[in-house]
Design a protein around this nucleic acid. Structure first.
Lengths: 113, 113
DNA sequence: GGATAATATCTATATATTAATATATGCGAG
DNA sequence: CTCGCATATATTAATATATAGATATTATCC
């Protein structure tokens, strides 16, 4: 039964998304490619943190790195990741009925797209 | 900035999916509701394992439990979860080019739906 | 070559997750 | 009421992950 191997693989993929910084990175990259510096600024995170979380996403082949001189540009490998995040957003939206403040922020985000 | 709180929340959601058994449970429940016993049989997992992973999904409000006498029927709360898994499947499909055996199994699964 | 900027990796410690096993709870049958 | 089945929870040891900080690598400029 390699259904199990497949499920382990899927679980690994979702685990790669299971971190606030990595979610942030993907949300930003879903819009357009960015350098590490830009990600640092947009996330308000320090350099090693961003770089380390990028390494996780790279290891899972979710993002790609393109080197240009001393800076590195990152992009999402599969545009479907943006769709995935969009569906996830709708699920949160349904789920958060009752948690007003988070819900408001989520709706603001949904409108923006 | 409660964008961060929101991202933490999203990360938690994905963490709930980040386990082979839980993926299995959701794939099965996406088809139709099942009792714990049915899940045990379908997954080939023992009772405490299934129950424990169901508890995780319950805690995140991803599944709902309905008690009928001594047995408990589980269902997925939001039908969008099935869509999420379907998109994830397409992402794996793109990503797995090169890993032939897993890819074959994945395509078999995609065809089935 | 040396200095500097951008990015990556490592290390140590704290914390979380898992798997296996044991035990507890609730309910229906008789 | 008590027995047995279905499910849930607790416990513990092993493993994995996160976080913060220090350090290493790489390319560019002089």
């Amino acid at each position: 039964m390699r259904v199990n191997a497949l499920r382990a693989f899927k679980a690994e993929f979702f685990r790669a998304l299971a971190h606030p910084t990595r979610i942030g990175i993907l949300e930003i990259l879903a819009g357009s490619d960015r350098t590490v510096q830009q990600l640092q600024a947009a996330l308000g995170a320090d350099q090693p943190t961003v770089s380390q979380q990028l390494a996780v996403l790279r290891a899972k082949n979710i993002v790609a790195a393109r080197k240009a001189g001393t800076t590195v540009h990152y992009s999402v490998r599969d545009p479907l990741v943006a769709d995935l995040l969009a569906i996830a957003r709708r699920i949160f939206n349904n789920q958060l009925i009752g948690s007003q403040s988070l819900l408001r922020e989520l709706q603001r985000e949904t409108r923006r797209r």
